[in-house]
Nucleic acid binder design. Structure first.
Lengths: 215, 215
DNA sequence: ATCTGTGAAGCACTTCACAGCG
DNA sequence: CGCTGTGAAGTGCTTCACAGAT
């Protein structure tokens, strides 16, 4: 069966909420309650899950632990994924220092930069390698995900190299509309585009009632 | 007329491509060419623009300079937007140091943190203020956008405070499904969710032909 | 009584296809 | 002849609403 991409994008949201519930010691949750937590309709959640199987109990809801396990398995979060960071400027450093990846099974195992001053430095238990060695290193020691944190001008180049090395998932922080061949998955992190689209709504909506009431 | 949200999300993409074209000295561009640059169909671009007016010339295409000006005006990018960063840890520091906001008219004018060691420090021409003074400062000196870079546990709290201060656009880097009242716009930057959804495709697709050919 | 799982209906967005202008 | 602007058709996603399980 062909599963709508938006559904795949929502599953990680569900796993996160379920993890929180599990930590709180909850055994069972209804689609209604999960929906309230996430700002999603209960029907949406039930329909999304129904693409993969029948995980709930009528009249009761979903077993938190069981549904979490199922989703981890469906998404492939029950294993370790190896990642390489390309570009170790301010942004790359912040990415290397981010503690949110590891606990979810995403480990940064290589870091590359073109600046001779940075090559050879040790950061967070990694030695920064020369960008020139990117291809050689990844062919010998493949990674699952490439994280692109280089300037816009060379980003497409770096992405092409990653693809040539067999990397099939790329997380790009570069502000360009990068193209990848079919079978390679690319997600972009674009704070500036997010701000620009919000500017439209700021410009075209009345001041919030709270603010209006105060003035 | 009610404009589909996805359309608003694409306009910033168009402005970016047009800026590049303008720097290259291009006078005119067709929806066909713009589409190829962005990975979007030409019909999509024409339809999107048609919500706002008629900016092209039949038989010729769009004047780059003129269309760029129109889009800047439509999105509200022809002015300065004031932003505050809340949370000046590793992530907040990277955000403060990011050079991509200023040139687009988004200026960070305040930074807040709860850690006494950081309060009072000067970073990038800003003095870090105490998180306790957030409300007082923003009521006296309002900002248009709040950038949330605090730990998950206190993010909803910070967001509620921002909303109370009349902030109507929030860019959140916190990994929580934060809720805001109607009339407040929230965009989230979620690298972990992006990775988790890509994991699904990695798990369920054959190795790319390039990689397969090599093995 | 409660809550799931799901066809069917409804809605939103995308693409088609072509009239009409330059 | 090329390319825009746009109703109409098509596609994909969301929500409804209810049969059925506990």
């Amino acid at each position: 069966m062909e599963i709508p991409p938006v559904v795949i994008d929502r599953l990680p949201l569900y796993t996160r909420a379920l993890s929180t519930l599990e930590e709180e010691g909850r055994d069972v949750v209804s689609s209604q309650e999960l929906g309230t937590l996430l700002g999603v309709t209960p029907a949406q959640i039930r329909k999304d899950l129904s693409y993969f199987g029948r995980f709930g109990k009528q009249g009761r809801g979903y077993n938190v632990r069981k549904l979490l396990d199922e989703l981890h398995h469906i998404l492939g979060l029950d294993r370790q994924w190896r990642m390489a960071v390309i570009g170790v400027g301010k942004l790359g450093l912040a990415i290397l220092g981010y503690e949110g990846f590891g606990p979810q099974g995403f480990r940064i195992v290589e870091a590359f930069d073109a600046d001779p001053k940075r090559i050879g430095q040790r950061i967070e238990n990694l030695t920064i390698r020369a960008a020139n060695d990117l291809e050689k290193t990844l062919l010998k020691n493949p990674v699952d995900v490439g994280i692109v944190a280089v300037p816009a001008g060379i980003a497409q180049n770096v992405i092409d190299t990653l693809v040539k090395c067999g990397v099939r998932a790329i997380l790009s922080y570069a502000p360009i509309p990068a193209r990848v061949p079919p079978g390679v998955y690319l997600k972009r992190i674009e704070p500036v585009l997010a701000l620009q689209s919000m500017a439209y709504y700021l410009k075209n909506s009345p001041r919030s009632t709270a603010a209006a009431a105060r003035s």
